[in-house]
């Protein structure tokens, strides 16, 4: 563990807590993409299959349980509890256009052609594009609530911090995972225009409103 990865995990944790707080306090899921949350649930389920078979540390197990538990709770809030406030018309990204290519790529490009490894690779590739339905929804509605912007900033920062973690681990431990790094770079790049909007607007107290 290093400071970059710890900050990254805390940023990820913060993003999930911000999202839950937004939903619980406002009792509304307006502006939140249910499809992205379903993709995140798929990512966590596929990646943490070894939750009960391989023990890394208490921290690792607790975080995995928390991530899986909260993402399914989020889906419950969106599609059941606060279903009336779910904006399905604007949450119209065709996720099959993500899952099929990502699934194919996981079969072709992986560290080892073994079921668990391919499923892990699928979760890494899927995570890098899982936010697209959410960003697409914001571009369609033309704006994002400030609390949703904080959620996205924390979520985007988590993988950017993981990139720093991988640089550190390469020099400190000789650890290098090309698949995770490339997917992490793609994932972080997808947030860049949002980061720009966040820093130039939200930090000055304005709302994010994209040209619709």
């Amino acid at each position: 563990m290093n400071i970059f990865r710890l900050c990254g995990d805390m940023s990820h944790l913060a993003a999930i807590i911000i999202l839950l707080l937004k939903m619980w306090k406002t009792r509304s899921v307006a502006g939140i993409s249910g499809k992205s949350q379903i993709l995140f649930a798929t990512v966590f389920t596929a990646r943490y299959l070894d939750l009960f078979t391989s023990f890394i540390s208490i921290y690792n197990t607790c975080m995995k349980v928390f991530f899986i538990g909260t993402v399914y709770f989020t889906i419950y809030l969106i599609y059941m509890k606060f279903k009336a406030t779910y904006d399905s018309n604007h949450d119209s990204f065709r996720v099959e256009f993500l899952i099929v290519p990502v699934g194919g790529l996981a079969f072709l490009v992986n560290h080892e052609f073994a079921p668990l490894e391919i499923i892990w690779t699928f979760s890494i590739y899927l995570e890098s594009v899982a936010i697209l339905p959410q960003l697409f929804m914001i571009s369609k509605t033309g704006e994002a609530e400030t609390i949703t912007s904080h959620y996205l900033f924390a979520l985007g920062s988590y993988r950017a911090l993981y990139l720093c973690n991988w640089i550190y681990r390469y020099y400190a431990e000789g650890f290098f995972d090309l698949i995770a790094v490339v997917a992490g770079v793609v994932q972080t790049i997808l947030y860049c225009d949002f980061f720009y909007l966040y820093i130039t607007k939200v930090m000055k107290g304005k709302k994010i409103s994209l040209p619709a």
Binding site: R5, D9, H12, D50, S54, I56, N60, M63, K64, F67, H111, E112, E117, W120, Y162, N165, F175, F176, D177, A180
Partner: peptide, 10 residues
């Protein structure tokens, strides 16, 4: 399998 880095990250 020696090429697959250990999976100790979230």
């Amino acid at each position: 399998d020696e090429f697959a880095p250990k999976k100790d990250e979230l």
